[in-house]
Each structure stands twice: as structure tokens, then as C-alpha cells.
Amino acid sequence: MLKLETPNGEKNVLLHACCAPCSSAIIECLLQNDIRPTVFYYNPNIFPKEEYEIRKAESLRYVKSLNLDFVDADYNHSDWREQIRGLENEPERGRRCVKCFIIRMLETARYASENGFTLFTTTLASSRWKNLADIFDAGRYAAKQFPGVALWEQNWRKGGLSERRLEIISQYDFYNQQYCGCEFSFRKSK
């Protein structure tokens, strides 16, 4: 398993999680490195609402099995749609995705700031379908808005985590979605 140290030596981290499949191996790795994550589930991009609820339930099921804290942030898809207005026809990995990362990282950094976390990271950095530079740019931008909070720029694709992720998906029989989450990626996946 990947050996980790947080940039500031912190042993508690706020982990923005997009779904159980993406977060499972990351959470396991954090715990094996004596780093306790609080899972922050904020994904207003997910559509339809039923899809959101399935993904949230799977994340909660995994987090509770490990006796960790789970923060169920507000689902406000209409606000998310308003914030990405004009970007609906952007390609995957385009400006819409960048804006979506910013929206989610800002809320994660805000929660971290208001709840005593000095460090946050995101499971978005585990997806081979996402641009790491865009994710980290969004996270750094969000962290700058909240003094005392920093982004942990960890590439969660390495160290055997992708392989372990597949094992955990099978072990827990996780629902494993076939698209990023928003209605625009859903249309592309059909």
C-alpha cells in the first residue's frame, strides 16, 4: 500500500468523496497510514436525483462499516445548473468540468474552514477520466479563499490504489456507475 504523509503532518483530513468506488481504496490507504478521514459528500452535479441517492447510500454504507464520520452536504442540483449555465455543450474535461471542480472544492474548503480542518483532499484525483491539473487548480483556488485551509494534492491513481479499488468494489458489491454524474456526461455515455 502507498506510504503517505500529509503535507502538514495532520492526522485528520477532510476527504471530498464523489462515490464509494472511487473513495474506498483511498479511505483504506489513509487509515493504514494512521490518517483519519472525515468523508465529505458534496456532489450537486449528479443527475438524476435517484442516481445521487444511490451513490450517497453506497458511500455512507462503506464509511459506516469503517466507523468513520460522514458529512452529507446539501444536494442542490438547480443551483449547480445555474452556476454552470452557458457551459452545457462543453466537452468532457472541458470548461464545464473545471467549473464543477471549483464549485465542489469551494464547498469542501468552506466546510473544512468552519469545522476545524486544516487540510482537505478529493477522490476526484483518482479518476483517469479527470484532468489532475484542473482538479488541483480548483482545489488550490478554493483553499486560498479560506485562510488556514490547504489542499493536499495527492495523486490517488498510483501505489496500487486502482487495483485495490476493483477488489473492494467486488468485496462490497458496490454499485459502480457508468458515467461521471452530470446529465451531460450521462448523455455522452449512452
Rank of each mutant, 00 (worst) to 15 (best):
Y75V: 03
L60Q: 15
P37N: 12
R157C: 03
G86H: 06
L161D: 03
I169V: 13
K3D: 14
A125S: 15
I169N: 03
T118G: 15
Q178I: 00
Q32R: 08
F186A: 13
T108Q: 08
M1G: 14
E183K: 11
S23A: 14
N43C: 03
V39M: 02
A133Y: 02
R104D: 01
A20Y: 05
N33A: 07
K49P: 09
S127R: 05
T108S: 14
L2I: 14
K190R: 13
A73D: 14
A20K: 11
Q154W: 08
D72I: 02
K130R: 10
K99R: 13
L124I: 01
A17H: 09
W129Y: 12
K56L: 12
K130L: 08
D173H: 11
D137M: 14
F174S: 05
Q83R: 15
F70P: 08
K130F: 04
I27P: 12
S59P: 01
F70I: 12
Q145N: 11
G116I: 04
S126Y: 05
R61H: 11
K158M: 09
R164E: 06
Y62G: 11
L124S: 09
D134K: 15
F40A: 08
R187S: 12
S23K: 07
L119V: 13
D173F: 04
C18R: 13
P91S: 06
R61T: 01
L151C: 06
C182L: 12
G9I: 08
E5L: 13
W80Y: 08
L66A: 00
A57I: 14
Y42Q: 12
A73T: 03
